[in-house]
Design a protein around this nucleic acid. Sequence first.
RNA 1: GCGAGCGUAGCCAAGUGGUUAAGGCAGCGGAUUGUGGUUCCGCCACUCGGGGGUUCGAGUCCCCUCGUUCGCCCCA
Length: 426
Amino acid sequence: MGSIQAIRGTRDILPDEVSTWQFVEATAREILNRAAFREIRTPIFEQTDLFARGMGEATDVVSKEMYTFLDRGDRSLTLRPEGTAGAVRSFIEHGLQAQGGPQRLWYVGPMFRYERPQAGRQRQFHQLGLELLGSGDERADVEAIAIATDILQALGLKDLKFDLNSIGNGIDRTAFREALVNYLTPYKADLDPDSQDRLTRNPLRILDSKDQNTQRILDGAPSILDHLSLESKARFDRVQQLLADLGIACNINPRLVRGLDYYTHTVFEIQSDDLGAQATVCAGGRYDGLVAELGGPETPAVGWAMGLERLILLLQKVQAAPIVKTDFYLVSRGAQAEAQALRIAQQLRQAGFKAELDLSGSAFGKQFKRADRSGAAACLILGDAEAENRTVQLKWLATGDQSELPQAEIAQYCEDWRRLIAQGTV
RNA sequence: GCGAGCGUAGCCAAGUGGUUAAGGCAGCGGAUUGUGGUUCCGCCACUCGGGGGUUCGAGUCCCCUCGUUCGCCCCA
């Protein structure tokens, strides 16, 4: 290993791939804007305590997956493992609730978790998420979900599975946990080792165990939906009704629980079959207690996050992002001509064209080869003769048509060229 | 953190103990010294992720290590 390479679990997104990222981000941005969500940008590291309190000390993410370090002032800092805690901290710190009405926020950026890399899972990965803070109305849940499905649809993703559940309020959950533990305890020896461990630690998470035998045992287990209070039940029914009104199909999955402690009532997950083990592409839910937990005013809220690497993995199976072709490729030789070509390139760019300047100084033949590869519509050619006469040769590469024109007249041709290139006839 | 597979050029690769490490793509140079896409020719790994060992001899076998891939766990 002579040369330095990217840290395990991180990777470079090279120019060929960036166009896909930009497509995803632009698509999401447009849809979020239309729904009156506003972008928020928060630091990528925070006090460790924020995540510990927000997600729950006992969660796997907090207990073993955080990038935590001491800075030079001996403060314990953590690279954010998710976006909600930072957004909520910012909401509280700047008193955004005082702006009146619910706050509709969204974010995109890198997140960090110290996990073993795998298909669709890295140590630095990217999430795009939204938080709708300040409304407990069922319509807020559904609005948030509808935006997620809009984005996925606009990206052209199909065959996604949308699972929905309600985990009720804290009281509902305590009652259910007890019922579940009572049911499972006699089977303890038959559960898989991880689930045995979770029986005392975090019994709800046994529900989504991948172990076949555990799942069989769960077939007879009590359902969270039978332990919801009348109010929680009515709330869940209303959410389902509103989703149906919007034509959003979902599968009620009473075994869907989420890994972070802050969720209440609505939880959901959107998965793909084409991603291997890390199938979840978007997940979220309601978190009515979190803002208060982090020291803010009692504020109901709902949100979700999408894993961009996973979306892009899916997109690469569906479609290739279009490449923006060069309009003009500038070929030049000789000091005077090269200087003029540089100036003309600038002029064309300022006029809105994509212009690429050949910097090689090599033979014209070589420069034309590169022009061809760039996919340019036309070449502008300057040699000693053109430099002397203050002219330029214009050659349309598709047809081979070539003409000479004075450099001073370039500006007046721009409109014609723009039209010709747009028509794709040259 | 646990389990399994894989590391040969920028990329895809052949090679499975015996003299000089196939081939393709890309790239570079030339045929074509002011005109591209085709074609032809040439160049492009003192060395097989790194280290150690076995052997007369190792890209090929063994050990360690790093990376990577897939799965478990967990999650977006």
